[in-house]
Design a protein around this nucleic acid. Structure first.
Lengths: 191, 191
DNA sequence: ATCGTCTGAGACATAATTGTCTCAGACGAT
DNA sequence: ATCGTCTGAGACAATTATGTCTCAGACGAT
């Protein structure tokens, strides 16, 4: 049965999540095809990495669109923005878990195309956070870019927690949102 | 002038922070010594990486000790625990910034020695968070290990923010602590 | 049955990295 | 001045990953 580009990317990213230094030979084996065939689809390792990056960015973008980030950024309705934020975090968890290795991989930070596209996506989220601040949903004293980075960092935490099996998948969304919105301080911290 | 192991490690980590894939030759050049001399100090790349890992862990450990993590974990006094938490975050910022590449490097996750030591350090922090929960300082409904991972993730955010120059260094501690303790929700989120 | 297409296996050259080794020179201590 | 130590430069073999290529066989369509 012939495997397409998409299946190769899926299997490759799954393997790279466990061993980020895997060679083309290892990747081919993980996909279940020969090294030659892998090279027929992606003429160089670099090309494969860029394709992987674009796929991860596509998932990210899709998560934004499904959550309605653009609409949320343009809205002034706290209810709607809150819904968008929740939906975005929910979907970003999936993306972080599936494409997590890309969170830290340097291929993403090296290719101008990927970098530019990733900056653009990040910009949309920053705009959403800024809108959330205007609506009183998020604290106005935090720089939107810091908020964006904090969300990113918490997603790293999510991924790590899942990888180690320290938290159940069904609890992750609640942990992420409650930590992000309310923080970790207890009653004693305010009393 | 002869350079010692410590100076080599310092220069190497600084360079690896910018290019995590640097070869031994590049590292030697960055340090300002010849490749031969580098190999005289660290017979293999692996040995260098392990030394780097131990150094990063030593800094981490020192941060814990300076903050009084052990005492804090054994204490029931909210005031003291709060001071320890603050001091710990303050010092972890420095460590994350200086040894940040180790935050994501897999050498750390590959060598049993490093892994074990890193687990041990993490365990101490988990104990501190648990103590903070008992003292009412941190929410009791969050798993201590999730809190630990969340702090780690927020440190990644700190490092990234500093690297991009998106926030000033003097603001970072406040951003980190306020985000961690209070979260990002604004007034509108509770009203 | 035959054609066209795709595949796996493997040979091959190339390049990059690594680790070892040698040798000559710099340098400080005595 | 001389010794011992350390260094840089560079040669060297070994390893590994990469990219290309060829060839034979599988497979489906006609």
């Amino acid at each position: 049965m012939s495997v397409g580009r998409e299946q190769i990317l899926t299997a490759a990213i799954r393997h790279l999540n466990e061993d980020p230094t895997a060679s083309m030979a290892e990747l081919a084996e993980a996909v279940g095809i020969s090294r030659a065939t892998l090279h027929r689809h992606f003429s160089s390792r670099d090309e494969l990495m860029v394709a992987l990056g674009h796929r991860a960015l596509a998932e990210w973008e899709q998560a934004q669109e499904a959550a309605g980030v653009a609409e949320g950024a343009a809205s002034t309705d706290p209810e709607e923005i809150r819904r968008v934020l929740d939906a975005l975090l929910e979907r970003l968890i999936e993306v972080a878990d599936a494409y997590g290795f890309g969170l830290t991989d340097h291929a993403m930070a090296v290719h101008p195309d990927l970098l530019r596209r990733s900056d653009e996506l990040e910009e949309r989220e920053v705009a959403l956070f800024a809108a959330a601040q205007r609506a009183g949903l998020l604290r106005a004293d935090l720089p939107p870019r810091w908020i964006s980075n904090a969300v990113f960092g918490l997603l790293v935490a999510v991924r790590e927690s899942l990888r180690r099996g320290e938290v159940a998948r069904r609890d992750v969304h609640h942990l992420l949102t409650t930590t992000f919105f309310q923080g970790a301080a207890g009653d004693g911290g305010r009393a």
